[in-house]
Design a protein around this nucleic acid. Structure first.
Length: 420
DNA sequence: TCTGGGGTCCTAGGACCC
DNA sequence: TCTGGGGTCCTAGGACCC
């Protein structure tokens, strides 16, 4: 059996751990730049606040019901996630960390174990150690474990744990699950299924596999088979290096200034370089994209991207930044107010497998040493201790984060103080 | 005034090989 | 009227996930 453990309203729960006065009250967490709602406590969900809505559209509800609003605090959520995962890892030799707030555990071979009792113990221990409430779904396939989790969250009688053990139960739960809620069925496929009068997970399992294969590719077919209790996906126990790495941000305010844009782009590029080095990779391609604010229809719009092929794959921040500058000069246009930029590095290879060039003028050994040193210093003294001058010092493009909570668990100066 | 960020996999079609 | 067969690699675009 596989178990899917999913943190309840994760970001909202993280905020509550350090402000327990908010328990039982509606709270929401916003996306970067304080744009959209990305997490809601149950009380906020009950008020009808939908996932992904721009916060300015629900100002009335927020004021009227005194909803607590938070900017995204990834330092906090990342650290809390690590604590939850470390705790979960003590319950099975095999764990796949699927996202910041979810993990699969492998219970294959746990034959002499009362899984329900075990799952309840996991919930209790995670809550005790981290303060984060979780829900647990257990089934023979990942997709069914996801479904079980869906019910564990929604049906109070389950008490946060749902185990799919027999056919009768599997059928019953499939019949109650809307097709669009199935893991792997997104908006487009849900609409397609609806058009063919398939409304529930059960009806989806009854559809012709040939038809599913044709309309939804082999991916859809796997989903169907997994719902029928046939395993198509195993746990992924080893993290493989990323095939593309992206760093992008919307700016706190729009800018028409090349210098400010370049500082932003250099910062994103430096971040990409760091991520590359962290997984011992080099990139052959660098893509830069920039665009204006598509919601400001009264302003002239410009969106463009460009991909440069690097002469030799690299993870050197300085070298990457030189190409990013060339890219920006090619697509930046005067007179437009840009809102967002991003850098993607791809064509990723292991740093030991970089194809050299006869005409290479870089001193790669020296550069690598320098980057190593830079990373070490930044790891020890904080991520912005040492950087390229090109990244600038003013950060005029910076995110809006007006409701940011303290980094309670990762900064000494943000530690909670208790007064007698 | 204000609308997120970072990924993966699959397929079709074109270019190319012998 | 006839004009092979079997393949690989790459990319863009579309679907999905959190």
């Amino acid at each position: 059996m596989f178990a899917l453990i999913d943190c309840n309203n994760f970001y909202a729960s993280c905020e509550r751990v350090f402000q327990p006065g908010l328990n039982g009250k509606p709270i929401i967490v916003l996306s970067n730049n304080d744009g959209c709602v990305v997490a809601r406590s149950n009380e906020a969900k009950a008020l009808g606040i939908k996932m992904g809505v721009p916060v300015f559209q629900i100002e009335g509800i927020v004021k009227q019901h005194k909803v607590s609003v938070f900017s995204s605090n990834y330092a906090l959520y990342g650290d809390m996630s690590r604590r939850v995962m470390n705790t979960l890892a003590t319950f099975s030799p095999d764990i796949e960390i699927y996202s910041i707030d979810e993990a699969f555990l492998n219970f294959d071979g746990f034959v002499h174990c009362d899984l329900e009792e075990y799952a309840r113990r996991i919930r209790q221990i995670v809550l005790q150690i981290t303060g984060i409430p979780v829900s647990i779904g257990i089934a023979h396939t990942k997709t069914l474990a996801k479904m079980a989790n869906y019910y564990a969250k929604r049906i109070p009688d389950y008490g946060g744990v749902c185990i799919l053990e027999n056919e009768t139960q599997r059928t019953a739960l499939l019949k109650n699950m809307p097709a669009g809620e199935i893991w792997g069925i997104g908006r487009k496929y849900a609409a397609l299924l609806e058009k063919h009068r398939i409304f529930t997970a059960w009806e989806f399992t009854r559809a012709s596999p040939l038809w599913v294969r044709k309309e939804m590719t082999v991916v859809g077919l796997r989903v169907q088979q997994e719902l029928c209790n046939l395993r198509c996906n195993e746990l992924e126990l080893h993290t493989s290096p990323k095939k593309a790495i992206c760093t992008s941000r919307s700016f706190g305010c729009m800018t028409a200034d090349f210098g400010i844009m370049y500082e932003a782009v250099a910062s994103f590029t430096a971040q990409c370089g760091y991520k590359l080095r962290k997984q011992s990779s080099c990139a052959n391609l660098l893509t830069l994209f920039i665009h204006t604010n598509p919601h400001r229809t009264e302003l002239p719009q410009h969106a463009e991207s460009i991909t440069l092929t690097l002469p030799v794959a690299t993870s050197d921040t300085g070298e990457l930044c030189r190409y990013a500058e060339i890219a920006l000069k090619k697509i930046f246009k005067e007179g437009y107010h840009y809102k967002k930029a991003g850098v993607i590095v791809s064509g990723i290879v292991d740093k030991g497998e970089v194809q050299g060039s006869l005409f290479d003028e870089e001193n790669r050994t020296k550069n690598e040493k320098m980057m190593e040193t830079l990373d070490k210093i930044n790891l020890r003294y904080g991520s912005h201790t040492l950087k390229l001058a090109a990244q600038g010092f003013q950060k005029k493009w910076k995110l809006r984060q007006e409701r940011l909570s303290p980094a309670y668990t990762t900064r000494w100066d943000h530690l909670i103080e208790i007064s007698g």
